[in-house]
Protein backbone atom coordinates (compact mmCIF):
# COMPACT_ATOMS: atom_id res chain seq x y z
CA UNK A 1 0.00 0.00 0.00
CA UNK A 2 2.90 2.24 0.68
CA UNK A 3 3.84 3.71 -2.69
CA UNK A 4 0.28 4.30 -3.67
CA UNK A 5 -0.24 7.54 -1.86
CA UNK A 6 -2.05 9.59 -4.37
CA UNK A 7 -0.89 9.33 -7.89
CA UNK A 8 -2.15 6.04 -9.16
CA UNK A 9 -5.79 6.64 -8.71
CA UNK A 10 -8.09 5.88 -11.57
CA UNK A 11 -11.16 8.03 -11.32
CA UNK A 12 -13.07 6.91 -14.30
CA UNK A 13 -14.62 3.89 -12.70
CA UNK A 14 -15.71 5.49 -9.49
CA UNK A 15 -16.57 9.09 -10.00
CA UNK A 16 -19.33 10.48 -7.90
CA UNK A 17 -22.12 12.65 -9.13
CA UNK A 18 -21.55 16.35 -9.64
CA UNK A 19 -23.94 17.55 -6.92
CA UNK A 20 -22.34 15.22 -4.41
CA UNK A 21 -18.94 16.48 -5.45
CA UNK A 22 -20.10 20.06 -5.06
CA UNK A 23 -21.45 19.33 -1.61
CA UNK A 24 -18.16 17.80 -0.56
CA UNK A 25 -16.30 20.76 -1.97
CA UNK A 26 -18.43 23.20 -0.06
CA UNK A 27 -17.92 21.22 3.10
CA UNK A 28 -14.17 21.25 2.75
CA UNK A 29 -14.06 24.92 1.89
CA UNK A 30 -15.83 25.61 5.15
CA UNK A 31 -13.52 23.28 7.00
CA UNK A 32 -10.46 24.91 5.48
CA UNK A 33 -11.73 28.25 6.72
CA UNK A 34 -12.13 26.76 10.16
CA UNK A 35 -8.53 25.65 10.03
CA UNK A 36 -7.13 28.98 8.94
CA UNK A 37 -9.43 31.42 10.65
CA UNK A 38 -7.89 31.24 14.14
CA UNK A 39 -4.42 31.85 12.74
CA UNK A 40 -5.67 34.76 10.73
CA UNK A 41 -7.34 36.20 13.79
CA UNK A 42 -4.12 36.12 15.77
CA UNK A 43 -2.29 37.74 12.89
CA UNK A 44 -4.79 40.55 12.49
CA UNK A 45 -5.01 41.26 16.20
CA UNK A 46 -1.25 41.54 16.40
CA UNK A 47 -1.43 44.38 13.88
CA UNK A 48 -4.41 46.06 15.51
CA UNK A 49 -4.50 49.10 17.68
CA UNK A 50 -4.59 48.12 21.35
CA UNK A 51 -7.44 50.46 22.28
CA UNK A 52 -9.57 49.21 19.43
CA UNK A 53 -9.02 45.66 20.56
CA UNK A 54 -9.94 46.44 24.12
CA UNK A 55 -13.18 48.09 23.08
CA UNK A 56 -14.31 45.96 20.13
CA UNK A 57 -12.70 42.65 21.03
CA UNK A 58 -10.64 40.47 18.72
CA UNK A 59 -11.79 41.05 15.21
CA UNK A 60 -10.70 40.26 11.69
CA UNK A 61 -11.62 43.77 10.62
CA UNK A 62 -10.19 46.14 13.17
CA UNK A 63 -10.95 49.84 12.94
CA UNK A 64 -7.35 50.78 13.28
CA UNK A 65 -4.14 49.05 12.35
CA UNK A 66 -0.70 49.79 13.70
CA UNK A 67 2.65 48.29 14.45
CA UNK A 68 2.84 49.21 18.13
CA UNK A 69 3.00 45.60 19.27
CA UNK A 70 5.92 44.75 17.02
CA UNK A 71 7.55 48.02 17.92
CA UNK A 72 7.41 46.97 21.51
CA UNK A 73 8.72 43.48 20.84
CA UNK A 74 11.51 44.86 18.71
CA UNK A 75 12.92 46.47 21.81
CA UNK A 76 13.28 43.03 23.22
CA UNK A 77 14.67 41.37 20.13
CA UNK A 78 17.76 39.99 21.83
CA UNK A 79 15.68 37.67 23.96
CA UNK A 80 13.46 36.59 21.12
CA UNK A 81 16.40 35.90 18.86
CA UNK A 82 18.15 33.94 21.59
CA UNK A 83 15.08 31.81 22.12
CA UNK A 84 14.88 31.22 18.40
CA UNK A 85 18.50 30.21 18.37
CA UNK A 86 17.93 27.71 21.14
CA UNK A 87 14.89 26.25 19.41
CA UNK A 88 16.71 25.92 16.12
CA UNK A 89 19.81 24.43 17.66
CA UNK A 90 17.92 21.90 19.72
CA UNK A 91 15.72 20.95 16.79
CA UNK A 92 18.51 20.47 14.29
CA UNK A 93 21.07 18.85 16.56
CA UNK A 94 18.42 16.81 18.35
CA UNK A 95 16.84 15.49 15.18
CA UNK A 96 20.16 14.49 13.66
CA UNK A 97 21.41 12.81 16.81
CA UNK A 98 18.10 11.15 17.33
CA UNK A 99 17.91 9.77 13.78
CA UNK A 100 21.46 8.48 13.93
CA UNK A 101 20.99 6.75 17.28
CA UNK A 102 17.64 5.25 16.42
CA UNK A 103 18.77 3.96 13.02
CA UNK A 104 21.88 2.45 14.57
CA UNK A 105 19.71 0.67 17.08
CA UNK A 106 17.07 -0.40 14.58
CA UNK A 107 19.55 -1.95 12.17
CA UNK A 108 20.92 -4.75 14.39
CA UNK A 109 17.49 -5.70 15.65
CA UNK A 110 16.27 -5.91 12.06
CA UNK A 111 18.92 -8.50 11.21
CA UNK A 112 17.49 -11.98 11.29
CA UNK A 113 20.88 -13.56 11.98
CA UNK A 114 21.46 -11.47 15.10
CA UNK A 115 20.89 -13.78 18.03
CA UNK A 116 19.87 -11.24 20.65
CA UNK A 117 17.58 -9.20 18.51
CA UNK A 118 14.56 -10.35 20.47
CA UNK A 119 16.08 -9.21 23.73
CA UNK A 120 17.03 -5.81 22.44
CA UNK A 121 13.70 -5.31 20.73
CA UNK A 122 12.12 -6.00 24.06
CA UNK A 123 14.36 -3.51 25.81
CA UNK A 124 12.91 -0.97 23.42
CA UNK A 125 9.30 -2.13 23.61
CA UNK A 126 9.30 -2.14 27.37
CA UNK A 127 9.75 1.62 27.44
CA UNK A 128 6.37 1.90 25.74
CA UNK A 129 4.77 -0.54 28.13
CA UNK A 130 5.95 0.92 31.35
CA UNK A 131 6.72 4.49 32.17
CA UNK A 132 8.47 5.42 35.39
CA UNK A 133 6.61 8.70 35.55
CA UNK A 134 7.42 12.34 35.94
CA UNK A 135 8.94 12.53 39.39
CA UNK A 136 11.66 9.88 39.10
CA UNK A 137 12.51 11.19 35.65
CA UNK A 138 12.81 14.70 37.00
CA UNK A 139 14.98 13.64 39.90
CA UNK A 140 17.21 11.62 37.59
CA UNK A 141 17.80 14.61 35.35
CA UNK A 142 18.36 17.13 38.08
CA UNK A 143 19.91 15.36 41.02
CA UNK A 144 22.06 12.87 39.15
CA UNK A 145 22.71 14.33 35.71
CA UNK A 146 22.56 17.98 36.82
CA UNK A 147 21.06 19.04 33.54
CA UNK A 148 18.86 21.86 34.75
CA UNK A 149 19.26 25.09 32.81
CA UNK A 150 21.03 23.38 29.95
CA UNK A 151 20.03 22.81 26.35
CA UNK A 152 20.85 19.14 26.80
CA UNK A 153 17.82 18.83 29.06
CA UNK A 154 15.72 19.98 26.13
CA UNK A 155 17.32 17.48 23.80
CA UNK A 156 18.08 14.18 25.53
CA UNK A 157 14.55 13.36 26.69
CA UNK A 158 13.33 12.98 23.10
CA UNK A 159 16.37 11.29 21.60
CA UNK A 160 15.08 7.74 21.58
CA UNK A 161 11.44 7.02 20.95
CA UNK A 162 10.68 3.37 20.93
CA UNK A 163 7.84 3.60 18.47
CA UNK A 164 10.06 5.20 15.83
CA UNK A 165 12.76 2.60 16.39
CA UNK A 166 10.23 -0.17 15.82
CA UNK A 167 8.98 1.53 12.68
CA UNK A 168 12.53 1.71 11.39
CA UNK A 169 13.15 -1.90 12.28
CA UNK A 170 10.08 -3.00 10.35
CA UNK A 171 11.15 -0.94 7.39
CA UNK A 172 14.70 -2.30 7.43
CA UNK A 173 13.41 -5.85 7.66
CA UNK A 174 10.94 -5.48 4.83
CA UNK A 175 12.66 -3.13 2.43
CA UNK A 176 16.32 -4.05 2.59
CA UNK A 177 16.74 -7.37 0.75
CA UNK A 178 18.73 -9.93 2.70
CA UNK A 179 20.53 -11.01 -0.48
CA UNK A 180 21.95 -7.55 -0.85
CA UNK A 181 23.40 -7.70 2.63
CA UNK A 182 24.77 -11.18 2.01
CA UNK A 183 26.52 -10.22 -1.20
CA UNK A 184 28.00 -7.13 0.41
CA UNK A 185 29.36 -9.29 3.18
CA UNK A 186 30.89 -11.67 0.67
CA UNK A 187 32.58 -8.67 -0.90
CA UNK A 188 34.16 -8.06 2.48
CA UNK A 189 32.18 -5.01 3.56
CA UNK A 190 32.00 -4.41 7.33
CA UNK A 191 28.74 -3.78 9.16
CA UNK A 192 29.35 -0.04 9.36
CA UNK A 193 29.83 0.14 5.63
CA UNK A 194 26.80 -1.99 4.92
CA UNK A 195 24.76 0.23 7.21
CA UNK A 196 25.98 3.46 5.69
CA UNK A 197 26.12 2.49 2.04
CA UNK A 198 23.29 0.03 1.62
CA UNK A 199 20.77 0.27 4.43
CA UNK A 200 20.58 4.03 4.82
CA UNK A 201 20.22 4.91 1.13
CA UNK A 202 17.45 2.36 0.79
CA UNK A 203 15.67 3.74 3.84
CA UNK A 204 15.41 7.40 2.99
CA UNK A 205 11.60 7.45 3.08
CA UNK A 206 11.39 6.17 6.62
CA UNK A 207 14.27 8.37 7.73
CA UNK A 208 12.53 11.38 6.24
CA UNK A 209 9.23 10.74 7.91
CA UNK A 210 10.71 9.87 11.30
CA UNK A 211 13.03 12.85 10.97
CA UNK A 212 10.10 15.13 10.33
CA UNK A 213 8.23 13.81 13.34
CA UNK A 214 11.34 14.37 15.47
CA UNK A 215 11.70 17.88 14.14
CA UNK A 216 8.12 18.59 15.00
CA UNK A 217 8.54 17.15 18.48
CA UNK A 218 11.57 19.26 19.21
CA UNK A 219 10.29 22.44 17.71
CA UNK A 220 6.93 22.27 19.45
CA UNK A 221 8.22 21.24 22.86
CA UNK A 222 7.74 23.53 25.83
CA UNK A 223 7.39 20.97 28.59
CA UNK A 224 11.08 20.29 29.08
CA UNK A 225 11.73 24.00 29.35
CA UNK A 226 9.01 24.26 31.94
CA UNK A 227 10.55 21.41 33.92
CA UNK A 228 14.21 22.11 33.68
CA UNK A 229 14.84 25.76 32.98
CA UNK A 230 14.74 28.18 35.88
CA UNK A 231 16.83 30.97 34.48
CA UNK A 232 15.51 33.26 31.81
CA UNK A 233 18.31 32.41 29.44
CA UNK A 234 17.93 28.87 28.17
CA UNK A 235 14.28 29.04 27.23
CA UNK A 236 13.12 28.17 23.77
CA UNK A 237 10.63 30.04 21.67
CA UNK A 238 7.65 27.89 22.64
CA UNK A 239 8.21 28.40 26.33
CA UNK A 240 8.75 32.10 25.83
CA UNK A 241 5.37 32.21 24.12
CA UNK A 242 3.80 30.26 26.92
CA UNK A 243 5.19 32.65 29.47
CA UNK A 244 4.03 35.63 27.49
CA UNK A 245 0.51 34.28 27.47
CA UNK A 246 0.56 33.35 31.12
CA UNK A 247 2.02 36.46 32.42
CA UNK A 248 2.45 39.59 30.50
CA UNK A 249 4.67 40.87 33.19
CA UNK A 250 7.17 38.47 31.81
CA UNK A 251 7.44 40.57 28.72
CA UNK A 252 7.64 43.86 30.50
CA UNK A 253 10.02 42.89 33.26
CA UNK A 254 12.38 41.33 30.80
CA UNK A 255 12.13 44.06 28.30
CA UNK A 256 15.01 46.35 29.02
CA UNK A 257 13.41 48.89 26.81
CA UNK A 258 10.17 48.93 28.71
CA UNK A 259 11.74 50.82 31.56
CA UNK A 260 13.32 53.26 29.15
CA UNK A 261 10.00 53.91 27.43
CA UNK A 262 8.39 54.49 30.80
CA UNK A 263 11.10 56.90 31.79
CA UNK A 264 10.42 59.01 28.70
CA UNK A 265 6.69 58.70 28.71
CA UNK A 266 5.30 57.99 32.16
CA UNK A 267 1.81 57.56 30.76
CA UNK A 268 2.86 54.78 28.46
CA UNK A 269 0.55 51.80 28.54
CA UNK A 270 1.87 48.57 27.29
CA UNK A 271 -0.22 47.29 24.36
CA UNK A 272 -0.57 44.00 26.19
CA UNK A 273 -3.22 42.19 24.16
CA UNK A 274 -1.64 42.93 20.83
CA UNK A 275 1.88 42.29 22.07
CA UNK A 276 0.74 38.91 23.23
CA UNK A 277 -0.60 38.07 19.80
CA UNK A 278 2.47 39.48 18.11
CA UNK A 279 4.51 37.10 20.22
CA UNK A 280 2.33 34.26 18.95
CA UNK A 281 2.80 35.37 15.35
CA UNK A 282 6.55 35.39 15.80
CA UNK A 283 6.36 31.88 17.21
CA UNK A 284 4.00 30.56 14.54
CA UNK A 285 5.86 32.14 11.62
CA UNK A 286 8.47 29.53 10.79
CA UNK A 287 6.12 26.59 11.10
CA UNK A 288 3.67 28.13 8.67
CA UNK A 289 6.39 28.95 6.19
CA UNK A 290 8.07 25.59 6.44
CA UNK A 291 4.76 23.82 6.45
CA UNK A 292 3.94 23.49 2.73
CA UNK A 293 7.38 22.04 2.16
CA UNK A 294 7.14 19.72 5.13
CA UNK A 295 3.73 18.35 4.68
CA UNK A 296 4.39 16.92 1.23
CA UNK A 297 7.23 14.84 2.56
CA UNK A 298 5.28 14.17 5.61
CA UNK A 299 2.22 12.76 3.94
CA UNK A 300 4.46 10.70 1.70
CA UNK A 301 6.53 9.40 4.57
CA UNK A 302 3.66 8.95 6.96
CA UNK A 303 2.26 5.97 5.19
CA UNK A 304 5.60 4.43 4.41
CA UNK A 305 6.86 3.13 7.67
CA UNK A 306 4.06 3.57 10.11
CA UNK A 307 1.78 0.90 11.31
CA UNK A 308 1.84 -1.27 8.24
CA UNK A 309 5.34 -2.04 7.05
Amino acid sequence: MSELTGKRKAYSSSEISKPADAAINVFFIIYTIICIFPLLLVLVVSFSDEKTVLVNGYSLFPDKLNLAAYDFLLNDWVNVVRSYGISIFVTVAGTLASLAMMALYAYPISRRDFKHRGVFSFVMVFTILYNAGLVPFYIMYTQYLHLQNSVLALMIPYLIQAFFVLVMRTFFTNSVPTELLESAKIDGAGEWRIFAQIVLPLSLPVLASVGLLCTLNYWNDWFMSMLFVNDNVHINIQYRMYKALQDLQYLSSNSTAYAAILAQNPNFQMPSETVRMAMAVIGIGPIVFAYPFFQRFFIKGLTVGAVKG
Binding site: P38, L41, V42, W222, Q238, G283, V288
Partner: peptide, 24 residues
Protein backbone atom coordinates in the same frame (compact mmCIF):
# COMPACT_ATOMS: atom_id res chain seq x y z
CA UNK B 1 -5.33 21.70 -1.26
CA UNK B 2 -7.87 20.85 1.42
CA UNK B 3 -5.67 18.07 2.72
CA UNK B 4 -2.85 20.53 3.11
CA UNK B 5 -5.02 22.98 5.00
CA UNK B 6 -6.50 20.32 7.21
CA UNK B 7 -3.05 19.12 8.14
CA UNK B 8 -1.85 22.55 9.24
CA UNK B 9 -3.12 22.39 12.85
CA UNK B 10 -1.25 19.13 13.36
CA UNK B 11 1.98 21.06 13.02
CA UNK B 12 1.16 23.65 15.64
CA UNK B 13 2.32 23.31 19.22
CA UNK B 14 -0.11 23.29 22.11
CA UNK B 15 1.20 26.66 23.14
CA UNK B 16 0.14 28.16 19.83
CA UNK B 17 -3.20 26.40 19.99
CA UNK B 18 -3.70 27.85 23.43
CA UNK B 19 -3.27 31.29 21.94
CA UNK B 20 -5.77 30.50 19.22
CA UNK B 21 -8.32 29.14 21.67
CA UNK B 22 -7.74 32.09 23.96
CA UNK B 23 -8.50 34.41 21.06
CA UNK B 24 -11.96 32.92 20.99
Amino acid sequence: FHQTMMFLPYFLSWVIITYLVYGF
